[in-house]
Amino acid sequence: MAAGGDHGSPDSYRSPLASRYASPEMCFVFSDRYKFRTWRQLWLWLAEAEQTLGLPITDEQIQEMKSNLENIDFKMAAEEEKRLRHDVMAHVHTFGHCCPKAAGIIHLGATSCYVGDNTDLIILRNALDLLLPKLARVISRLADFAKERASLPTLGFTHFQPAQLTTVGKRCCLWIQDLCMDLQNLKRVRDDLRFRGVKGTTGTQASFLQLFEGDDHKVEQLDKMVTEKAGFKRAFIITGQTYTRKVDIEVLSVLASLGASVHKICTDIRLLANLKEMEEPFEKQQIGSSAMPYKRNPMRSERCCSLARHLMTLVMDPLQTASVQWFERTLDDSANRRICLAEAFLTADTILNTLQNISEGLVVYPKVIERRIRQELPFMATENIIMAMVKAGGSRQDCHEKIRVLSQQAASVVKQEGGDNDLIERIQVDAYFSPIHSQLDHLLDPSSFTGRASQQVQRFLEEEVYPLLKPYESVMKVKAELCL
Rank of each mutant, 00 (worst) to 15 (best):
L174D: 13
Y432L: 11
K477Q: 12
K415M: 02
D178Y: 14
C180H: 00
L128T: 11
A150D: 00
L461S: 14
P366E: 15
I385N: 02
D87M: 02
T158A: 10
A388Q: 06
P378V: 10
A102Y: 03
A206C: 07
G109E: 04
G394A: 13
V219F: 15
I373M: 12
Q320G: 05
D216K: 02
I139V: 03
E481V: 07
K218Q: 06
G231H: 13
A206Q: 12
A136C: 06
N68Y: 11
R190C: 01
L341N: 12
S23R: 09
V363I: 09
R85N: 05
I351P: 02
L423I: 04
F208V: 07
A3E: 00
T111K: 08
L142M: 11
S323T: 13
F145P: 02
L443W: 15
L121M: 00
Q325K: 06
N71R: 06
R20K: 11
I176H: 02
V315R: 11
I386E: 06
E220C: 06
V138C: 13
K147M: 06
T201M: 00
L130Y: 13
M89R: 04
G4W: 01
Q205L: 01
R20M: 13
A102F: 14
S323D: 15
L443S: 00
S323L: 00
I427K: 10
L423D: 13
E343Q: 13
E279N: 00
S306C: 11
D192N: 06
S434A: 07
E473H: 07
H159V: 05
R245Y: 07
R194C: 00
D216A: 08
V368W: 08
T167Y: 07
K199I: 08
L53R: 06
R188C: 15
D73A: 09
T111P: 11
S323W: 08
E60T: 06
T154P: 13
T38M: 05
N68E: 11
P471D: 14
E213I: 11
C399I: 09
R372G: 06
S31L: 08
V324D: 11
A2Y: 13
A480V: 04
G116M: 11
A2R: 14
E81M: 00
M299Y: 06
H86R: 03
R171S: 04
P446N: 00
F36Q: 09
M76Q: 12
E425Q: 14
K82T: 09
H437C: 01
F282V: 15
